[in-house]
Design a protein around this nucleic acid. Structure first.
Length: 323
DNA sequence: CGCTCTACCTGTGTGC
DNA sequence: TGCACACAGGTAGAGC
């Protein structure tokens, strides 16, 4: 599933392959994929057509492409959330000269030409001015695209953008900075998490506290920090929370490095953890397999309509608290 | 307001 | 073989 490292891999690919291009055609194959664009698919297409893609920005699991100035309107952006199966694929002619970044020898086929195979889960296609296409592909349709306005926030934009771009897409305004954002206030996150009256895994997954962590990396981070996700945040020491945040940042950085090395230059692609990080997962999806640290079989438990994976020895479950 | 729970989707895998 | 159902899970919004 696309969490922060996978989304960052996509952002990087977009930054290298589509910036400077202008959208010349918008083909929404499934309206549901633009459901968050409240003015509807026609308005979505109208707002994008003729616009130039100027920067690729990410916060947590949200990703957006800043658009050049629209006629008589404020700043806006093409916003994407990949959900659990979304992909952004760059396909087409301009990749022929992308050898410097990817070294690919693949035959490049223009969209629509002989030999072109369209992805069965293509939801939205953006035709670009060099004959290439940016495809939004999403099997399970939890992902979505929209073109929201940018709004100034007290928090400001991620990643050291210029002051003219100190703004976030409306749907991202409430999302906290992520663990790889240099401007993240770690101490404030620790304080906020400990102030919560909930379990630590729930707090780690709360995108308004710190963003980018999903179910997979939450379990991996908790395992690295030797904490059970059911531990009450209020009972944790500050050093426990700091260790957890360090572990989460570390595991996501490592995943990002692996994702980067396996990145196929022909695609701006993401297959989620199943694509390339599987072999490095200590506990997620590993029920019954030995814990890499102590050999105790990894355990799977129900958690919030999904699963949690833990080592019962390294991460002892807290004693049930009485109210 | 703070926290928990569910709806939203569809392809894949499993059990009967 | 075919059908039913569980499962994967991020987010918004409803509910308490």
């Amino acid at each position: 599933m696309p969490e922060l490292p996978e989304v960052e891999t996509v952002r990087d690919g977009l930054a290298r392959h589509v910036l400077g291009r202008t959208v010349v055609d918008v083909d929404v194959r499934r309206d549901y994929s633009v459901r968050r664009h409240e003015a509807g698919p026609l308005d979505f297409a109208a707002r994008l057509t003729g616009r130039r893609l100027e920067a690729a920005v990410r916060r947590g699991k949200f990703l957006w492409l800043l658009l050049d100035e629209g006629a008589g309107r404020g700043d806006d952006a093409l916003l994407a959330h990949l959900g659990m199966s979304g992909q952004l694929l760059v396909r087409g002619a301009h990749l022929a000269d992308a050898g410097a970044s990817g070294g690919t020898t693949d035959v490049v086929v223009a969209p629509g030409s002989v030999g072109w195979v369209e992805h069965p889960h293509l939801r939205v296609r953006l035709g670009l001015d060099d004959g290439s296409a940016l495809d939004f592909v999403d099997q399970r349709t939890f992902g979505h695209l929209s073109v929201p306005d940018l709004v100034p926030t007290p928090d400001g934009a991620p990643g050291g953008l210029g002051s003219a771009r100190q703004a976030l897409p409306v749907p991202v305004a409430h999302i906290a900075r992520d663990l790889l954002d240099p401007a993240l206030d770690r101490r404030a996150v620790v304080t906020a998490m400990r102030a919560r009256r909930t379990e630590v895994k729930r707090a780690l997954l709360d995108q308004t506290l710190v963003s980018g962590v999903g179910n997979i990396y939450a379990d991996e981070a908790l395992w690295r920090a030797r904490l059970h996700g059911a531990r009450p945040t209020a009972a944790l020491r500050a050093t426990d929370v700091e260790r957890l945040l360090d572990a989460a940042a570390e595991v996501m950085t490592q995943a990002l490095e692996q994702g980067g090395t396996s990145f196929d230059a022909l695609y701006v692609d993401v297959n989620g953890a199943s694509g390339y990080f599987d072999r490095s997962l200590a506990v997620y999806g590993q029920d019954g397999r030995p814990c890499p640290r102590c050999g105790t079989p990894v355990r799977r438990d129900a958690f919030a309509n999904r699963s949690s994976f833990t080592c019962p020895r390294c991460q002892p479950r807290p004693r049930p608290r009485r109210a």
